[in-house]
C-alpha cells in the first residue's frame, strides 16, 4: 500500500498511483446497473430517483437493465407478496456475480404495514442476502441515493484477496439461493435458514 502522504505528494507532481484493487472497485462502484423492476409504490420513488430531478445517473446507476443477466444490483422496491417471492428469488439467482441487493421500503425489509397479513412476505431477507436496508414508507429518492452511496462505500472497501474477500470471490460460497415453493398454507420453506434466522432478543442481566 502506498503511503497517503507520498501519494498526495506524487499527485501534485502529476503522478497518479493506485492499486489494482482500488481501480477495480472504483470501476465497479460507479457502474452499478440496477435491475429494472418494481413491486409497489416504492418503485415510483425509484423511478423518480432515476429521472432528471434526482438524477441517479450522477452515481452511475441510471442504466436500468430489463434483464437480470445484465444487472449488478437488485432494488427490491415494494411489497413482496408470497405469490411474488419465488419470482424475486429466481430473478436474483439469474443475476451474475458480483451482485448486490437493496431492500427498499418498510415492506421489502420487514413486511411493513402488511406484516400481520396472510399474503405478504415478512421481508425479502428471508430468502436472499440483503446488503442495504432502507426504511421508509415509501423512502424518498434521497434515501435511495443514500443507500446507493452506502453500497458504493461497501464495494469500495471490499478486499479482493484474503479472508475478508466478498462472496463472489469465494468459490465455495453460494451464488444461488433456494427458490421457495407454494405450499398448502404458506411458502415452503417459510424462510431460508442459510440466509436468515429469526432475530433473538436477549436482555443484559
Amino acid at each position: 500500500m502506498v503511503d497517503e502522504g507520498l501519494r498526495s505528494e506524487l499527485q501534485k507532481q502529476g503522478v497518479f498511483t493506485t492499486s489494482l484493487e482500488e481501480l477495480y472497485n472504483w470501476g465497479r462502484k460507479n457502474s452499478l446497473w440496477p435491475l429494472g423492476f418494481g413491486l409497489a409504490c416504492c418503485a415510483i420513488e425509484m423511478i423518480a430517483a432515476s429521472m432528471a430531478r434526482f438524477d441517479l445517473a450522477r452515481f452511475g446507476s441510471e442504466v436500468f437493465r430489463p434483464s437480470p443477466r445484465q444487472a449488478d444490483l437488485m432494488i427490491v422496491a415494494g411489497t413482496v407478496t408470497k405469490k411474488m417471492a419465488p419470482q424475486v428469488v429466481r430473478l436474483y439467482n439469474q443475476m451474475p456475480e458480483p451482485k448486490y441487493v437493496i431492500a427498499m421500503g418498510a415492506c421489502a425489509i420487514s413486511g411493513g404495514p402488511f406484516k400481520q397479513g396472510y399474503n405478504v412476505l415478512k421481508g425479502i431477507d428471508r430468502y436472499i442476502p440483503v446488503d442495504i436496508h432502507i426504511p421508509g414508507c415509501p423512502p424518498r429518492p434521497e434515501a435511495l441515493i443514500h443507500a446507493l452511496m452506502a453500497l458504493q462505500k461497501k464495494i469500495e472497501q471490499q478486499a479482493l484477496t484474503g479472508e475478508a474477500r466478498p462472496r463472489h470471490l469465494r468459490p465455495e460460497a453460494p451464488s444461488e439461493f433456494k427458490v421457495p415453493e407454494f405450499g398448502e398454507h404458506d411458502l415452503e420453506p417459510p424462510n431460508n435458514p442459510e440466509v436468515w434466522r429469526p432475530p433473538q432478543m436477549t436482555r443484559p442481566e
Binding site: K115, Y118, H185, P198
Partner: peptide, 20 residues
Amino acid sequence: DGFKDFPMRKDFSEPDDYEY
C-alpha cells in the same frame, strides 16, 4: 392454486412464523 385455506374467513389461522 395449491393454497388450501380461505384467508378472509373468521376461523382462518395463519401459519405461525412469529418474528420479534
